[in-house]
Structures are given as structure tokens and as C-alpha cells.
Amino acid sequence: MPRPSPEDLLALQATARRVRQDAVRMIYTAGSGHPGGSLSVTDLLTALLFREMKLDPTRPDWPERDRLVLSKGHAAPALYAALAERGFLPREELLSLRQLGSRLQGHVDRNKLPCIEASTGCLGQGVGMAVGMALDARLAGRAHRIYAVLGDGECQAGPTWEALLAGAHFRLSNLVVLLDRNFYETDGSTEEIMGIEPIADKFRAFGFHTLDIDGHDFSAILAALEEARRTTDRPTAIVARTVKGKGVSFMENKSSWHGKAPNRAEAEKALAELGAELGVPAR
């Protein structure tokens, strides 16, 4: 893929801003959800869905499509908003998040929403499912690629490391693991609760080609994904250093915003910082 032009980068930033706006609107309307990790992962999801991945919104079941597994399934609002922006679901549907009967479950559900590749939510299982998909693609002789987006809290879970071991053992060069390294989990800082650093060294030691980048810098994200494509002997891990709650000053680097919805005043303030009106009815 050609290097992104300055215009491309500006367009991605604008898209990510709209995704963040919608994610906050959705969580406000739902009255619950996970704003911190949705806002930190938005740029990674935007880079994947709008630039990196081979996708066709008119054919969510296209066999050749690239696969995205959101292992940190609680960042569902960001993914739904990005998928809507990409044309996979109507934007009007977004405000149904977490309501009875909605396709937009609190954690992503492939049986309710067809463009979701894997249902996740309980942490530590996404990379394993992605490893299975990568093995399947290899067995089938298909060239599509598998992207697993991992949270840093999940790096405390044993099965994450089991799956990384397997990805390296099977030399799955069609697998890319992106770590949304936002440094906070529900109860506080990851390093105070159960430290995972030096995390890039750990991925390296597990056999992944590992890159350490700023997860809010689109040119860095796209360059890392490009390097992953050129890595044909093993899987790639991208440690994307991000800011929890990115874009909303009072949510940034606050674990208290891991799993809490803003009230109306907070939502209005958040949207103002993100450059838009809240524009949704009071809940």
C-alpha cells in the first residue's frame, strides 16, 4: 500500500474524531459502558478498518475479507461506531447499544451482528480465536490476514500468553496482534495492580516480530502494519502506546472512566472537546 499522504492522515483523524463522538454518545445514551478503552483504541480501529484491512461493507461474509477480532470486547462502542462509519451498519442503530433486542450487545456478538468476526467479552480469549482463524486461512490457502486487538489488562490473563505461544509456534505470519497499551484497567494502573512491563520484550521473547509505537499516530500505526505485512516468517505484535480516554481531557488517564457512563453535563463537555454537539435526547 502507498504511504499515506498528509490528506489521508487528516482524513483518518477526522474519521477517528467522528468515531469518538459517536462512542461517547452511545455510552451516554446506554447509561453504561466503557469509555476509557473505547477512546484509547479508536485510532487503531480506524487505521485498520479504513486503510489497512481488505473489506467490503456490502458483503460482510466475503470469504477473502481480512478478520478483526476485538479481544477487548468491552471497547464495543468504538468498534460499532467505526463499523457504522465504514458502512457496515446504519448509524441510526448506534444509539440502541446495550438495549434489549439490540444487535449492539454490551460486548461484541457475532451471532447478533454479522460484521463481528468473534464474540468476545470475557478477556483472554481473542488472541486464541485469532490464532484459530489464522490456521484456518493457512489451511485453506487463503491470503487474508487476521488482526487481534488486545487490551493491556488482558495481558495479565494466562490464556493470552498461551495463544501468543501458539501464534509464534505455528509461525502465523498472517496474524497481527495490536496491543492497546493505555496503562489503566478497572481498579487502577496496570503497573500498580499487576505489572506487565517490559511488555514489548515479552512479545519479542514469545517469538513475535514486535514494534513499539505511538498508538495515536496514524503514520506510525500504518507503517507498523506495513512492516507486519513484510514479515513473512512469524507473527507481528504492535505495542501501541495510547492514552486511556483519549480526546476527552477529564477522562484521560483515569481508571475511574474505564467502565462508567458520563452524565449529560459530562457528555456535553466530552462532545464539545471532540468538536461536536451531543445531539442526542436526554436518557
Binding site: Q125, G128, G132, D136, P159
Partner: peptide, 12 residues
């Protein structure tokens, strides 16, 4: 546990 997740991913 991860065998089960890998199995799921392989089956889809």
C-alpha cells in the same frame, strides 16, 4: 482453554 479458543477460530 486456548485450545478451545483456537478450535472455535478454526471452525468459523
Amino acid at each position: 482453554p486456548t485450545m478451545m479458543s483456537i478450535a472455535a477460530g478454526l471452525s468459523l
